[in-house]
């Protein structure tokens, strides 16, 4: 089964779309099969334990202690700085 990455942002529309698209393109190029899920921060509880890695576009957020899924901060998707490293890190969790 393809591994899953959850992209979380404030309302699941703008910033998370940018991240989703870039992750999908990058993984497709690298031949990594994965499913990218886009959600609002409020929906976290419903997804947290069903995914392999979480990309957080909301910087102020803290995840509940019950969530053990690896977490990656998604700021590079917006600034472009360190984007490749971030994508590589996501890739590691998806292989």
């Amino acid at each position: 089964m393809a591994k899953r990455v959850l992209v979380l942002c404030g309302n699941g529309v703008a910033t998370s779309t940018v991240a989703c698209k870039k992750i999908q393109d990058y993984m497709a190029n690298a031949n990594v099969r994965c499913e990218v899920i886009q959600a609002k921060i409020g929906e976290l509880a419903s997804y947290a334990d069903k995914v392999d890695v979480i990309v957080l576009m909301a910087m102020g957020a803290t995840l509940p202690d019950t969530v053990n899924t690896p977490l990656i901060k998604g700021l590079p998707f917006l600034t472009g700085m360190g984007l490749k490293e971030t994508l590589e890190e996501i890739k590691k969790h998806l292989q």
Partner: peptide, 16 residues
Amino acid sequence: LLGLDSAISIGHPSVL
């Protein structure tokens, strides 16, 4: 200052 979407600030426990 790089002007980004305020969506990156949503999610602080006090906000929620």
